[in-house]
């Protein structure tokens, strides 16, 4: 009963949220970019290539967070069979993959001048690549399996198994010797990044998060429209 009712309601809220984000996004983007590219100081060692970090780190965070939420929602879907969740996870995946690839590409661009190599098969970089492959698996399951139920089941399994990779990515730099440096920002304890660089980083994170939300909402809207077009009474 409330499923039918919520579809129209969700649509209304998506419209409102999209408009709100659109109204503040470009201003915030300008502010964050001017802090990241102009106002923040260069690094004492890397010079200006530190600015790549302001895109790289937030992208990696968002890529990881998106996958974690896809996996947790998939678990919820598996347990309680809430049909709406399927649309949500399906809508998060493309933007999550985009940010994961962005993290890998910007990391590579940073690695060339800093480490002296574009790519290294170390634990952090490889596990991040595996995350991208899990995303691709998840999306491919929806794309190529025409039977809805089956596609949903297989993509959920991909997401839930992929969840194991998330802590491996997080702790890879502590468990093994890697070329990638350990985390500068720690959940507990002080961070090893100066506040004049931390501030633009956090700003960029919020801006990119807003962008992620915007793309997600647009994709979610499309999915709902697709359902409505099929003229189904329920999901």
């Amino acid at each position: 009963m409330f499923k039918l009712l919520s579809l129209g309601n969700i649509f209304f809220w998506i419209e409102k949220l999209t408009k709100f984000i659109n109204s503040i996004f470009f201003v915030l983007l300008l502010v964050a970019l001017s802090f990241a590219l102009i106002l923040s100081p260069p690094d004492y060692l890397q010079g200006d290539s530190v600015r790549i970090m302001y895109v790289h780190v937030p992208s990696a965070w968002i890529g990881l967070a998106s996958f974690t939420s896809i996996a947790l929602l998939s678990i919820a879907n598996f347990l309680f069979k809430i049909k709406n969740i399927k649309l949500i996870t399906k809508s998060i995946a493309p933007i999550g993959l985009m940010f994961t690839c962005l993290a890998i590409v910007t990391g590579s661009l940073w690695g060339q001048p800093t480490w002296g190599t574009w790519w290294a098969w170390d634990a952090r970089i490889t596990s991040m690549l595996i995350l991208a492959l899990f995303y691709i698996g998840f999306i491919a399951a929806h794309k190529f399996i025409s039977e809805q139920e089956r596609a949903n089941k297989i993509s959920s399994i991909v997401a839930i198994i992929g969840l194991i990779n998330v802590p491996i990515i997080k702790y890879s730099v502590e468990w093994w010797n890697t070329l990638h440096q350990p985390a500068s920002i720690k959940l507990t304890g002080s961070s090893t990044i100066h506040s004049s660089m931390l501030m633009p980083l956090i700003l960029m994170f919020f801006v990119l998060l807003l962008y992620c939300a915007l793309i997600f909402l647009m994709k979610y809207k499309t999915e709902i429209i697709r359902i409505k077009k099929k003229n189904l009474k329920r999901l």
Binding site: P41, P42, D43, Y44, L45, Q46, V50, M53, T114, W115, G116, T117, A120, L179, Q181, P182, A183, S184, T192, I193, H194, S196, M197
Partner: peptide, 17 residues
């Protein structure tokens, strides 16, 4: 036959250094 530099997790402006 190949050297890679490893960067540590410290980031700071040059003045501070």
């Amino acid at each position: 036959d190949r050297i890679l530099a490893k960067h540590d997790e410290n980031y700071m402006p040059p003045e501070l250094k």
